[in-house]
């Protein structure tokens, strides 16, 4: 197996005196979908927010341990550099309401003051929107504001915006929890297609979704990483009793 894109080592996080994550060890493989699954409050969202260092923006939040992207310790880098290398898609679609669809896709370049040629921008916009399976729907309306898009389309726009930066890894924080079933199916299919080119870490509270789209699954419960392995093994022959109970719907 090739070396993982991301390694989480002996990692703990807390809000004030409240531990949220306890001694997590996890690795994310290249061009695979890794799902973080668990009931509400288990720390899965906190974990991915630690990976792009958004966790520390909250007052009183702190961490111990290390997270390596390839071989670089994310906590020894400038958070701005970390976030340029790691893309994120949020629970609720959040395209920038003041920008056109086009400008939303290249927002990462424009907002960071990265100067690129017009043709290069056009190429990035088309490529990213194609990857996010949104190009055909918006190609004639690129310079209009994104507010007329449906929730699912807005979320795909946000995915395109993250992909435009060519991230080493794409974090998705319950990307379908605010969407209807049809849009959810669309995003899930998109995730399956994306993994040929992108490494994805997906947070979900939806067991079936983890089973459908992921290659590896981590089960978190009350801040502990209970079990981590291939999705196939975790869903068929889990090692831990708690995993089995969670999967069979006894709690969560």
């Amino acid at each position: 197996m090739e070396s993982p894109v991301l390694r989480v080592e002996n990692f703990s996080a807390h809000f004030g005196d409240n531990p949220v994550l306890k001694d997590i060890n996890l690795s994310v493989q290249h061009n695979r979908v890794t799902a973080l699954m668990g009931p509400s409050g288990c720390g899965k969202t906190t974990l991915i927010r630690c990976i792009n260092r958004m966790h520390e923006l909250i007052v009183d939040a702190g961490v111990e341990g290390s997270i390596y992207l390839h071989d670089e310790d994310l906590y020894k880098m400038n958070p701005i550099m970390v976030r340029k290398k790691i893309g994120m898609v949020f629970q609720r679609p959040n395209p920038f309401p003041t920008m056109s669809i086009y400008d939303n896709v290249v927002a990462g370049y424009n907002l960071n003051g990265i100067k690129i040629k017009r043709e290069e921008k056009d190429r990035i916009v088309e490529e990213s929107l194609r990857k996010a399976a949104l190009w055909e729907e918006v190609r004639d309306r690129l310079h209009r504001k994104g507010s007329f898009l449906s929730g699912g389309q807005q979320q795909r726009l946000c995915i395109a915006r993250a992909l435009a930066m060519n991230p080493d890894i794409l974090l998705m924080d319950e990307p379908t929890s605010a969407l209807d079933p049809k849009a959810t199916a669309h995003i899930e299919q998109l995730i399956s297609e994306l993994k040929n080119n992108v490494t994805i870490l997906l947070v979900t509270h939806n067991i079936a979704q983890a089973a459908r789209v992921s290659d590896f699954t981590a089960f978190l419960y009350l801040g502990d990483l209970v079990e981590f392995g291939t999705t196939e093994k975790l869903f068929t022959v889990p090692d831990d009793k708690r995993t089995e109970e969670y999967l069979s719907g006894k709690f969560g």
Partner: peptide, 18 residues
């Protein structure tokens, strides 16, 4: 909404520019 601020920060945009 805070989610716009987060969207911008998550793209690696500095606080001032956000």
């Amino acid at each position: 909404p805070d989610i716009l601020r987060e969207a911008s920060l998550a793209l690696g945009v500095s606080y001032a520019r956000t």
